[in-house]
Amino acid sequence: MSTSSRPAIKLPDRTLLLLVPGIVIVLTLFLYPFLFGFILSFLSHQGPNLGNYTKFFSTPFLSETIWTTLWISLPATLINIGFALPVAFVTRRHRFQRALTAILVIPITLGTVLIAEGLLTYLGPQGWLNRLLLMLHISTSPVHLTHNYWGVFLSLVVSGFPFAYLLLLSYLTGIDPALPQAAATLGASPWRRFIHIYLPLLIPGLAIAFCLSFVQAFSVFPSAVLLGAPAGPTRVISIAAYQAAFEDYDYPMASAIAMVMAGVQLLVVALALTSRNLFYRGPTTGGKG
């Protein structure tokens, strides 16, 4: 990474020109719109001011979407990570691991829209799950799992759990097996090996996995509309942004909501990464070199 050893004056490297098209794409299609949206968000009908932001935070219908979204996305992320960690740990050397990962990739690639449609059929009042619960006398009336909070929550688990699992699996397999083996020869039990060897080395990976999972869950959109109650309990912030842009055609307001969304995400990510540093400082993959 360091370039300090290079001479200050040299012929321009033509190979670097290969970067130009890629950089142009990102600058024009990503950074420029983002900055454009940022500036646009400060424009309201009376000229440049904070109007859109004050409107957002003073209108409960808009500002409450932040809490609604956090209330769905944070528990879903924690559950996904919490379950993915032991499962990934147990299956990391399993002989069916490759088949298992292949099955788990399916929900990720099918995408949220298909998961929403599938859950509507599967979890609906007449769906297989409710039939099973009724047949086994676990419940006496159909459980309402669609068009409410739980529908969106479950869709986030279906799409988020495999994501967290695959991410943690790649971090776990990156840990040098010699380290826990050394601990084992010194008499550490499997539990102590997990607590004192794997977990500390995994904290950075866990933090990254948490951030990536959270960012995905926080921007939940299609399933919140299709599987939730988009007018009330699952009116997430993406819906507010979408409605501002394409139903009210208020692009400055929509940009402001998008910026708030990015801001909240960055805040949570920053918190997660800071708390990581409280546990451990070192390379993310840990133990490899």
Binding site: M1, P33, F36, A241, A258, M261
Partner: peptide, 26 residues
Amino acid sequence: KRVVLLLFVLPLLVPPMTYGIPLATV
């Protein structure tokens, strides 16, 4: 190089909904 790398990583980290709306506007 670090700046360029960051430039390439950012579009993958930021969820599409956030930059998609300003992008659609443009």
